[in-house]
Design a protein around this nucleic acid. Structure first.
Lengths: 201, 201
DNA sequence: CCAGATATGTAGTGTTCACTACAGATGTGG
DNA sequence: CCACATCTGTAGTGAACACTACATATCTGG
């Protein structure tokens, strides 16, 4: 009982290419023809490896969030709530205008509204965005316990706020906003977190 | 030379129905079959009246932005930059969770990323979002001239910031955030504008 | 009441979509 | 070297898509 013919392409490299197509055109806007061409494979290879179009998206999202989570760990390692927000939003400004990637964020560009048959794609993306928000909230809970945030501060609301600003910046990036414009948004946004902080130096 | 058979449907009523379909499913996710059924007409009537699918979207956007601009006039009529931001963002929180409409904002749900052949839909939506941002910027320029905003304040950055938060809230609303959650985001967001204001009473 | 003009409903058009049948290629275990 | 398992490329499949041809219906102007 042999093990069969080995795969001739690298799954992760192919996923990177698929990711870029989804990122640029969204889930519904990306066609199998575009995906297979970018991945350098033919449809049967895609389906054998990832099941179907939605399976491919999920695999691409897994890869995207995996890299993103490494970065998020660095973000929440900042010493204060204000520093966390600044590191997060300034980093977002840079990442979303990185010419190495399509503008914006895959978790937004992937699909906010979808047609019949793809209804759970927006859910899937929202769930992954929520993970980052949870991570921020936990960090802000700690900041409050440490006396870094005021007693009146609401860590969940702050996390939701930072998450909302991130998403808004992503949409702006995808519609042409440049890095400097996004940094200015981040700079203003951080001041709201600062207003909730005890140490405003 | 007669004037022909009169139209049997009301264009604005039909547009309201089409608007809802685009709002819920996005431009690409909305099908002509869904649109015609919601509008209560048949495809030839749609094409005779609006040209094509994109023409229908633009007509729906015209109607949407027309109503929205009336509201924006009330927003910028608030007495201070801080009050403008609060009225805007609190209003957004309420409007984007109004059960009479699909959640979120048509100018976002309509389509952030699109496939080949619909590339200019995201541009069209971005252009209309930019109109609101320009209106905010003008209002903040005035606020600065009136001494309401600090000398160090950047009206364009503030307007872009409020616009980004609005968009982010819209995405959150469409993925299930409730009114209270959005109001908390708005409440935090306003504090960044407050930090740029001279009178912080 | 007739001629011209525009709207409507039925029933399609060609195209593109996600997905796959199948045959041949390339590996492993015995 | 053979049985078997898996991958690959070619060439499609049926379904859904945006859009329309056409006959009919309903108006206005004369």
């Amino acid at each position: 009982m042999g093990m069969g013919r080995p795969r001739e392409f690298d799954a992760e490299t192919a996923l990177d290419q698929a990711m870029e197509v989804f990122w640029r055109h969204g889930y519904e806007g990306a066609t199998i023809a575009q995906l297979t061409e970018a991945m350098g494979i033919n449809p049967p290879s895609l389906y054998a490896c990832f099941g179907n179009k939605e399976g491919l998206l999920k695999a691409a999202l897994d890869r995207y969030t995996k890299l993103r989570n490494i970065w998020m760990d660095e973000v929440v390692a900042a010493p204060t709530a204000r520093a966390v927000a600044e590191r997060m939003l300034m980093g977002i400004a840079d990442k979303q205008t990185d010419p190495a990637n399509p503008p914006g964020c895959l978790l937004v560009q992937g699909g906010i509204a979808c047609g019949t048959g793809s209804e759970n794609v927006p859910f899937e993306l929202a769930a992954r965005r929520a993970q980052n928000e949870d991570q921020l909230r936990d960090r802000f809970v700690r900041a409050k316990a440490e006396g870094d945030l005021k007693e009146s501060a609401d860590p969940a609301a702050l996390a939701r706020y930072v998450s909302a600003v991130s998403v808004g910046m992503g949409v702006m990036a995808s519609s042409g906003a440049n890095r400097e414009a996004l940094r200015q948004v981040a700079d203003v946004a951080v001041q709201a977190v600062e207003a909730q902080s005890t140490d405003k130096t």
